[in-house]
């Protein structure tokens, strides 16, 4: 399959990269750009480990082609620096093995931006798209709510 060079806007930088038309954004991020924070967990949208933020919305990067991301603003876990939700995850022990963590944090981060006062139902609707096999989710709930309360 022919390769093409595209420019992705990632974490505030323009990153030219060479991809096949069928490469997913996840594959390009990890394999081409070395941004391995986004994780492959299922490669078909079931687990959320690959979640990034595209134009302000959470997106499973295994379900989006790299070429579709051209012209969009992509933020990956590497683009967050000491954000409140990252701090809250540390404080609340909201991770164990850490594999689901980047995806969860990106989803939570988008949620907090879009719905800073989300009620329990909204939080559930957003976060049930990610799987964490280690924690009980209570820790993640606490982390999200701590940020909402501005702690």
């Amino acid at each position: 399959m022919p390769l093409q060079t595209i420019t992705l806007h990632i974490n505030g930088e323009n990153r030219p990269t060479t991809v096949r038309a069928s490469d997913t954004l996840l594959y390009a991020l990890r394999g081409r750009l070395g941004l391995t924070g986004s994780k492959p967990g299922c490669l078909n949208g079931d687990c959320g480990a690959c979640t990034v933020n595209v134009d302000g919305w959470p997106m499973k990067s295994c379900l989006m082609l790299a070429v579709e991301a051209v012209g969009k603003k992509v933020t990956t876990i590497e683009g967050l620096h000491d954000s409140p939700i990252q701090q809250a995850f540390v404080k609340e022990f909201a991770f164990q093995c850490g594999y689901c963590t980047p995806g969860f944090i990106m989803n939570c981060h988008s949620l907090l931006e879009q719905h800073p006062d989300a009620d329990d139902q909204t939080i559930k609707e957003w976060l049930e798209s990610n799987i964490c096999r280690c924690t009980s989710y209570i820790e993640i709930e606490k982390a999200v709510k701590a940020v909402m309360r501005g702690e």
């Binding site: 876990i77 990252q86 022990f93 850490g98």
Partner: peptide
């Protein structure tokens, strides 16, 4: 004491490396 895990910062920033991350 609930000592913060040593690898916490790496895990919440996506910098923690797992086997498939080595290429």
């Amino acid at each position: 004491r609930s000592v913060i895990r040593k690898e916490a910062a790496d895990k919440v920033t996506g910098r923690a490396k797992y086997t498939d991350d080595f290429e």
